[in-house]
Amino acid sequence: MAEALKIFTQQEAQKLIDMEEVIRTAVARAQNSGIVFLDEIDKIAGASSKHGPDVSREGVQRDLLPVVEGTSVVTKYGMVKTDHILFVASGAFHVSKPSDLIPELQGRFPIRVELNSLSEQEFIQILTEPKNALIVQYKAMLETEGVELKFTDDAIAEIARTAAMVNARSENIGARRLHTIMSNLLEEILFEVPESDVKSLTVDKKKVQETLASVIEDEDLSRYIL
């Protein structure tokens, strides 16, 4: 009955909504406040590759140009003007530079901001401060099992230090390194906890070092695991 009522409610809601108005609003909103995030823009910068079945990167840039500059795109909801859509491009620009983009496209991205690599100190903040911080997440997850998970300050510092070190030694993947380290660190706990009767667990510096030591020492191995 509850289920049936829910279905009825959905159907009635459908009837009450004026789909045409929805589409009008949606088109206006996409045109005036839509945000398009173009990741890896650096991959289409630079000289077009001369070999292989690769599509010319410059060609892609030329295709992007009208969309970024402002054109009308036909969609099944009608025409959408792209003039006022905000484009945010991003890229590492390791190999190519923003100036390798075709000039027309460069001109369409007047603002350039550089983001810096994260330091150990920032890793500590990332682990603890944001509302959705990793440590907050893991704590909440273990709470569902009735276990209180605690990290000592020096444990967090150690995690941050390890992350920075691994980043420096192998590929620098930024804050994502914290994910891999945390999941390695807590692997045992996450596996065992449902069948044990501990109510509280504390992760300290020693625990961090012990758990991660074997993986870190072997540089080759850490390339695959951390």
Partner: peptide, 8 residues
Amino acid sequence: NIILIGPT
């Protein structure tokens, strides 16, 4: 429009 430059 904005270009954000930085490592992953």
